[in-house]
């Protein structure tokens, strides 16, 4: 039996909103030691999502037997919208489940809502992704990155990112003209989360599909900062750290033909 209780429904609500436009059907893998993990690839096979929710992400977590919960994220999103952000959220499944039970409890305990969501058998490709060294790592406020990705998409379908020793340059060029945004490394002593950190082994020049970057920045509601790891001609890693877990996106770059 699985029973995972979140202190507030808002984490799960924001997670599903962050990924449901990229992938529709996902297997949620549940285990006592690892908590809930998920790996899913978008239909175009350009963007991969990897989620880890350690047991520590939950107020209470119990999983007697390893389970795979095949879920339609559109449906899960509909159910999650029934609960308030501040509600306790508990996910419950039997050992060989056909359904996932989603329970919201008002913190004042005067209202309990229960939904049963049908599970599906989902045949999905799983890719092996090993930790690797990247040419550079950038950590910046996730809202700053979201603004650049959204603004620059209005100019072009592609966003070029150039990283040098102490600056990151975003460039877009399209039918109406060109644009660039340069951000420089700095340390904000008052609020560390506002700092911009650039670690560079080698300068990087990569281009990504603006559509995918716009999907990725939907996760900026989950973490105040995002870490971007880039290497020339290799998929980039965008990581949003969660309390006791992470949401990572791996995005394949574009190349010049």
């Amino acid at each position: 039996m699985l029973e995972g209780k979140f202190e507030s429904a808002s984490l799960m609500k924001r997670l599903v909103e962050a990924i449901k436009d990229s992938v529709k059907l996902c297997n949620f893998n549940c285990s006592q030691t690892k908590g809930i993990t998920l790996q899913a690839i978008d239909d175009s096979r350009v963007l991969l999502i990897s989620l880890k929710l350690d047991p520590g992400c939950f107020e209470g977590f119990r999983c007697d037997k390893n389970l795979v919960l095949g879920l339609d994220l559109e449906s899960l999103s509909k159910v999650l919208k029934q609960g308030n952000n501040e509600d306790y959220l508990t996910l419950i499944a039997e050992d060989a489940p056909d359904n996932l039970l989603v329970v919201f409890e008002d913190p004042k305990k005067d209202r309990i809502s229960e939904f049963s969501l049908k599970l599906m058998d989902i045949d999905s490709d799983v890719l092996s992704i090993e930790d690797m060294d990247h040419d550079c790592s950038i950590t910046l406020p996730s809202s700053d990155f979201a603004k650049v990705a959204r603004d620059m998409r209005t100019l072009s379908e592609s966003l070029q990112i150039l990283v040098t020793k102490d600056s990151v340059k975003f460039m877009a060029s399209g039918p109406i003209g060109t644009g660039s945004v340069i951000i420089k490394a700095h340390t904000d002593l008052k609020d560390g989360k506002e700092s911009i950190k650039i670690d560079l082994n080698k300068s990087v020049n990569v281009t990504f599909g603006a559509k995918y970057l716009n999907d990725i920045v939907k996760a900026s509601t989950l973490a105040e900062t995002v870490t971007i790891k880039l290497t020339n001609k290799i998929p980039a890693l965008f990581e949003f750290k969660l309390q006791g877990g992470y949401l990572r996106y791996y995005l394949a770059p574009k190349f010049d033909e």
Binding site: S44, D125, P235, A252, K254, D256
Partner: peptide
């Protein structure tokens, strides 16, 4: 012209 790489070009199916 920019063409999109596919993740399958980089990672192996398990």
């Amino acid at each position: 012209k920019n063409t999109q790489f596919n993740l399958m070009d980089f990672y192996e199916l398990i």
